[in-house]
Design a protein around this nucleic acid. Structure first.
Length: 259
DNA sequence: ATGGCTATATGTTATAGA
């Protein structure tokens, strides 16, 4: 089963590029971030016509996540537990049953800039809630895949110019420590284990010729629970998408699981 | 690069992203 994550930076803006990538890459499941749309505004028919079941968790203007799946999506839940006052649409879960039942978590972790400040406080609090949710999911001992835009540069080799990020919410020591705490629960960073070399990126800014200069960062991650890591066959980053017509600033990242 | 671009809605300007 091929499972992908793609921060599309606006469904309206990616109405041509996303179906084109789906037809070519043919993921069985894809989690989307930054759909920037309310549920009623999401063009679900386009994806249903391509053979996908569609579940969205949107909001007006920004954020918003979704899951598309060729297999039925079961037990869908929306929102990250732990704060009933949180109105930002950044988390969606569903179970997909192939050879095995997989719990899929699609996430859009807060950016957190500027740091310090209330947005950074929100990011760290969100990561703490995510850690609690991750721990609960691990306790099920079922295969769990948590994938999406983490807005975390885990290590210096995950940035072309790490020195440019030292005061940024994506790379601050406190951010990376919070990410390590989640990893330390027992997750595997699928891209890290299969593509351990430096210079593997998933995002290139629209500004300052970042793509042309390969000034990228790796912030879109696929974390696997131990039971999911045992199923890992392959990983990939569809880097060519960044060079196409009207691209997102992120590219798709995928794993192939024997599931 | 102290924000150089892109996207959306709040819409000829502001907010957010990373």
């Amino acid at each position: 089963m091929k499972i992908a994550t793609f921060n599309i930076n606006g469904i309206k803006a990616r109405i041509e590029a996303l179906p084109a990538w789906l037809a070519e890459a043919a993921p069985d499941v894809v989690v989307l971030q930054e759909i920037k749309s309310v549920d009623e505004g999401f063009p679900r028919e386009i994806f249903e016509d391509l053979g996908y079941n569609v579940e969205t968790h949107g909001q007006k203007g920004f954020n918003g996540v979704a899951i598309l799946s060729k297999l039925p999506l079961e037990d869908v839940t929306r929102g990250l537990p732990g704060d009933d006052t949180d109105e930002q649409a950044r988390w969606i879960e569903a179970t997909v049953v192939g050879k095995r039942a997989l719990r899929i978590c699609g996430l859009y972790l807060p950016n957190g800039n500027p740091a310090p400040g209330p947005k950074y406080d929100y990011k760290l609090a969100w990561m703490q809630r995510m850690q609690a949710r991750a721990r609960a999911l691990l306790a099920t001992e079922e295969p769990v895949v948590m994938l999406g835009d983490y807005n975390v540069i885990p290590q210096a080799e995950d940035a072309a110019k790490p020195e440019a990020w030292v005061t940024d919410a994506l790379f601050l020591p406190e951010t990376r420590a919070a990410f390590r705490r989640i990893m330390a629960l027992g997750f595997t960073d699928a891209v890290r284990v299969r593509m351990p070399q430096a210079g593997v990126y998933t995002f290139w800014d629209y500004q300052a010729g970042a793509w042309e200069r390969n000034n990228g960062i790796r912030i879109d991650h696929v974390l696997l629970s131990p039971q999911a890591a045992d199923l890992l066959c392959d990983v990939g980053i569809d880097k060519a998408e960044r060079g196409r017509e009207k691209p997102s600033d992120h590219v798709p990242v995928w794993v192939e699981l024997d599931s």
